[in-house]
Design a protein around this nucleic acid. Sequence first.
RNA 1: GCGCCCAUAGCUCAAUUGGAUAGAGCAACAGCCUUCUAAGCUGUAGGUUAGUGGUUCGAGUCCACUUGGGCGUACCA
Length: 542
Amino acid sequence: MKNYLIELFNTAQAKLLYLSEIDLTFSVPSQSNHGDYATNAAMILSKKLKRNPKEIANEIIANLDFDKKVIEKIEIAGPGFINFYFTSSYNSQIVKDVLHEKENFGKSKKSAGKKAMVEFISANPTGPLTVGHGRNAVVGDTVANMLEWIGYSVDREYYFNNAGRQMRVLGDSVRMRYLELLGQNIQFPDDYYQGEYIKEIAVKLKIEYGDKLIDEDAEGKFKQAAEEEIFADIIKTMERIKIRMKNFYNENTLYEKGKIKALLDEFKKKNLSYEKDEAVWLKLTELGNDMDKVIVKATGEPTYRLPDIAYHITKYDRKYDLMIDLFGSDHSATYPDVLAGLHALGYDTNKMKVLIHQFVTIMEKGEVVKMSTRKANYITLDELVDEVGSDVVRYFFNMRSITSHLNFDLDLAKKQSDENPVFYLQYAHARISSILRMTKDEGLNSSLENLELLITKEEQNLLKKLYEFPHDVIFSAENYETNRITSYLEELAALFHRFYTECRIIGSEKKLAEARIALCIAVQTVIKNGLSILGVNAPEKM
RNA sequence: GCGCCCAUAGCUCAAUUGGAUAGAGCAACAGCCUUCUAAGCUGUAGGUUAGUGGUUCGAGUCCACUUGGGCGUACCA
């Protein structure tokens, strides 16, 4: 439908040159009596041309060479909207496209040939993934999926650091728990990692080595074991929610390959850094930011900014057309420095897109649980998956805009799980499977021969919704908005359930019944495709 | 103090990026199963879009200020 309008207007541009001067948009009006699609082109042009919008609208319509079999009528309404009404027989043809393209319906080649990288999670191996990481993980993976759907070749990458103070403390935390197990009286510091998992790692070490590690350094076996155990757990958790990285990038590599030193020299050479109080500062003020920041401490150790910039340079070296960073709002202060640094070195920062998601607040028994990895006061992503399952977790994190806080009421999520919208969608999918089983027993088959018989309001609404899917996927992907997909699917499922209530298959005249079966398959296909973008299962039975 | 994000129905959130009469789901109330899955459908009720001004054909959306919240504001990441 939309594609037809776009072509129609492209043709008309030859006669009405002003049409090429504006961004044409076609939208589905919120009210059905305003047509199937509408455009505000005449109103936008009215400002430019200083003419009456209705007059312009009339002129546009007069120059649209449309097929009566496709468009039933065109009206001018309100302040100058042009409303298009499509014929029901044209609408029904979408079923052919869906059944023909199957699992590919909704994919496009819009960004074919382009390479994208989505960097997400990127948690250092100091503890299990929490619910907060869960939002990052799910949204990052889904954004990657959406980009693949519009043609990008996408690499998922996890950036981590297993050096530095954090990891030393982690190793020492394990060491102390180990010594405790050997019967020593230990004062475990408050600012050490308090979690149970530390004790578990210590237990494993004791089983394996007995008391042989009693004089071992914190940064030796203890740190190494902790990192390995924790990373293995993180990967296991990721797999439970269907996330697989292409690459894990260790910050250490940057040092080993001399990239940190090279970058430092580059900044110095370009006169972008200076020394003060025995530290090296980046001239961020000159680059438009609020204040200069330290990139190498007086101790000689770089701050995170330097490796972060060096890391992003490796992304540019790897020739990505689009680089996405996703992190929580607690890291929102870091990226302007990184972008400014890259920009100053001549990198095209338009190729980078930084997505910031707001916090996940966990409510339990009506109270907010304050989360801290250090204090082990958190709910792990694993526990969440145990409670509600991967599908609910993925759907829940995808269903809200990343700009809004996500209020996760654990008690509600547990007991309410069969009222969750994800079940509404899965139910629609399973219901169609059931219909297909039943109708097959009745000797009815899907047929594309008489689709024009699909004329009831319920059928037509469903058909029009199917047309929107590919456009919604593009829109969602280009705006990195996973919640558009969930709303689309909820609307589609609602239209299907209404159709189900009003339109019977078994008992209808054969031609109509078989056209309806085709429609059901089309709806089921789109639900399945949409759920697969979200990483949610589409069950045959429930 | 300064910067970023946010404030929409009792609760959790949408609103095609400036469009026509602001929509869903929970929760509440009233209905619908001898017929393809009632995890469903139909209806009722619920709003000064935090507030005040401004920009224009048109504002929940953009701008300014005010109020209230979250996150930052390190020689931690």
